[in-house]
Write a protein that binds this DNA or RNA. Structure first.
Lengths: 216, 216, 216, 216
DNA sequence: TATGAATGAGATTTCATTCAT
DNA sequence: CATGAATGAAATCTCATTCAT
């Protein structure tokens, strides 16, 4: 019910613009206030400072993304590590997978500005390493997946570096999407292709490792 | 020996440290000078300003990388688009490819700090979009490759978005390497795996497209 | 009363002093702020920078002077180019002339500091050639006057150089007044003498030209 | 016999250029040295500093001008205060007068740059009030002239302010010449006209004063 | 003669932040 | 709620000058 004061709204809007144009560091609170038609004092009534203003834009979308991601990957883990998955993957599972990927992309495009800021304009703010956080999150799921698969196929191992890199690529894929494709529908299409490639890569990597291990 | 004044050397060293720690924008010339044990005036004797100081560290390594990259990919283009490549790829050609990839990685690790700055700490400087430059360079090669392959197999096409993404991933791979693996030998190993994955992905993507086209 | 903040007033006062003592270029904003008892930041709240601070002191007086000058000379032009003026000049017209000259001198002395700055201390600021502007303004009137008189007495011509010089002298007369006579009443007296001399010189110059032309 | 080192010569030439372009204050010794192709150290071998470098350009021409001026006006004084001058002035005396005025103008145009600097670009240097010095010099002559004439015609007085103004105008005439007429021959022509006007004004001013005194 | 490195003090400007009202 | 004035610290940069070599 917080009546979301008009001033606060204007401030947030101007802030988005300024942060997007100049990045966190170069952004000037003065300009934001001027653009919003209020004084600096007003800004400090609603926000604690520059950092807090930035957070007000990006925190909630990021938290939601984190939740979504956790869910998405915990699903993936159960699916991909299900007995017999490796023989038949990319058949029925794809639907489930895609639908969740779509949810992620959808969330990101619903909060386009926020994620743009978060993923490409946060240098200097306390969110500057939020990418790392996401990567870590994903990597954790990857690790679990790998562990479960290894439990079934003992020769199946992915080295740590590659695992981390895959996680990174996963996040980078979102960033790339955001910065290169403004249309959500097309974005979902691209993401599908990319995820296919990633999943296949992941599988093959494991198989190769297997073969390598086998040939020793 | 008067060619490389001791002071200039100290200045460059301190600058590297400060830029690495705080990034281009937040870096303070005062601190750099203080750390080097000279006055700010001294800095301005050797460099034209902050931008020039940064450039003094990163420009030459970047230029060399660009050259190396051009050569590397022009080789790749001729190899990969050679008749019959798709049937037998990843056999003898790999050696050639690896050796050049090694050269790239070697160059990057020889100038570790410079590339760290360039690829992750340049925001605010005129090098802030050097990543885009590299991506573009690589993409150009990718396009040529794709065109040549398309000339041989008319159904073979990669959509523009994926091509750009592959180029980006290629650069991101270097960045990831730099930020996560400080040992050059291991880095070369990782890079080999990644490049394999990338090349395979590239090929499959084309084959898939072919199949898709065929099924229409 | 909040229209003219005390601090701003103090700043302007200190600025006047500093600019007068050291001229625009040598003047130090630091000293101005120190003298006004505020920090440099305060100055930048009220003014955009050094140039703007200077302008805040001199612009409005200069603009007014320009208006006054235009009016003064447009009156002069109509009077001096009236039929029969040359035979009876310096009789009743002088009053009109003097009264306006008085207005000019009055305006200048009302803004003593501003004109002092403008005419003798503006080197380095964007007002540094304001003297030229005034000369040009006056010269334009002179030219019109000369043209009208020439229309009545076809042989009547003043060469360009002398016309420009007269205009310059006119402005120089004001500068000289300002720098050498601080008492406005006395200044008005001096100005009367000088203007008489200038008008007479102007007339004679024309008569001489006439004679010269006649003797050809 | 001082072999006038080539370096010194180059330095002076570059200094003239820089001072003319930017004025004393804005002029940069660094730029002067760079333009001359030497280092700052060299400059400090030949000159004591910025002030001394400027003086090296302007001092000697100024001293000579002072001498010339003294002579010119001491001649004028004797001529103009000769018994019966006022009845017959502007006849034979004109020749004498013109010849000396020509000498002055010639000297100034022979040292065009130096006087340009001295009269219009010296703000900030110790020569910044050299104009006042010249005015004072001339005024002294004027005063003597006026005194001598007053001795002959007791009613003949020029008030102090006007005397000073005339002196100023005299110098201003030179400045104006320098800044508006680069051709010496034409300059001499202009100067003739101006001096005629000045002398006539001077005489008439005295006559008016006489009349004014008489009418009391 | 001249170099080239270095000084050190000063310049203007920017900015997030605070606080009395 | 919001203003608007003011802070204070830091930023980059410029310059005449000095001095060991």
């Amino acid at each position: 019910m917080k009546s979301d004061s008009e001033t606060k709204e204007k401030l947030l809007k101007s802030a988005k613009k300024e942060f997007l144009e100049n990045g966190y560091m170069k952004a000037s609170l003065r300009k934001i206030c001027a653009d919003a038609g209020v004084t600096t004092g007003a800004l400090y009534f609603f926000f604690e400072g520059k950092e807090d203003l930035f957070a007000a834009i990006v925190k909630s979308p990021l938290d939601t993304l984190t939740e979504l991601l956790k869910k998405h990957f915990s699903d993936d883990v159960s699916v991909m590590s299900a007995p017999g998955f490796m023989e038949k993957f990319s058949i029925e599972t794809d639907k489930e997978h895609d639908s969740l990927g779509t949810t992620l992309v959808h969330h990101i495009y619903q909060n386009y500005d926020a994620f743009m800021l978060l993923l490409t304009k946060a240098q200097g703010s306390k969110f500057e390493s939020c990418v790392d956080g996401l990567v870590e999150l994903i990597e954790k799921s990857y690790k679990e997946m790998a562990d479960r698969m290894a439990a079934q196929n003992p020769d199946c191992q992915v080295n740590e570096y590659m695992r981390h890199w895959f996680a990174h690529m996963n996040v980078d894929a979102f960033i790339h999407l955001l910065t290169h494709e403004s249309d959500e529908q097309k974005a979902i299409g691209h993401m599908g292709q990319i995820m296919d490639y990633l999943v296949k890569g992941w599988m093959e990597m494991i198989l190769i490792q297997e073969k390598e291990s086998a040939s020793k």
